[in-house]
Nucleic acid binder design. Sequence first.
DNA 1: GTTGTTGCAAAGAATTTGCAACATA
DNA 2: TATGTTGCAAATTCTTTGCAACAAC
Lengths: 140, 140
Amino acid sequence: MTVGTHPESALREAGLRPTRQRLTVLAALGDRSDSVTAQQLHAELRAAGEPVGLTTVYRTLAALSEAGLLDSFEREAELAYRLCGDAHHHHLVCETCNRVEEIDAAEVEAWVEGVARAHGFAVTGHRADIFGVCSACQSG
Amino acid sequence: MTVGTHPESALREAGLRPTRQRLTVLAALGDRSDSVTAQQLHAELRAAGEPVGLTTVYRTLAALSEAGLLDSFEREAELAYRLCGDAHHHHLVCETCNRVEEIDAAEVEAWVEGVARAHGFAVTGHRADIFGVCSACQSG
DNA sequence: GTTGTTGCAAAGAATTTGCAACATA
DNA sequence: TATGTTGCAAATTCTTTGCAACAAC
């Protein structure tokens, strides 16, 4: 089940009440394939006439991320978020349009395990992202 | 040639004057194997009786990073830096002591190229880091 | 009714900028 | 001397918190 199809249930399962603001944020995230920061999203919701407070956007993104409904990663020292599926994955990020493609990375998972074992590390997480310019932006 | 052995030359080659402050910053970075933020480093230099302004620490870290002498990555929405060698590499970061080990990652480079090509991306960069708890911190 | 949520205003923290004094070449 | 660098103070920006009104259960 993806977040997009049953946003209310997804919130409920996360122990979060499905308020207007949270549904608005989820809907906005579902409409886009790029990532956004709290500031960006708040400005856009404002512009679209959706009354949601900045504080609420911050708290909502943090809560949804905590619940595993969002992916978060960092862009110039700001946190950016986007909806994510269930499986663990990695990102291909266009630096021009901020669009994010999820990529499967079985190879990377294997690499992570091997390296960590070799160094005696107990793995708690990893990150593997590729940055570049997507084909559309190269043309434009 | 590593930065550690000839800090002055390294600065000069980067088009930066080897000032006392910059040498102090480089020396401090050379003394440690973990990563630091501008705020941290400034506090430590202060405590050590080295008079370097916070603004200068920010500007110096940014300049050195820009020049490729430092690696930068993000820790809880703050930029952290550390000296880096010449080759491209990846990190194994201990979340307890912040120590960073550089790891070779030929596999990852190959993976990056393959994925990017498949998606029509022009690669500008990538990042692959592993987080965990090092063996020393597991014992302690 | 009880408890979680919202949003304003204020506080806090990180970072950047203006600019005059200073150091390096 | 000419130009790059420093550092203070002030301004900016991002984020969090206190708290009273409000919505969901």
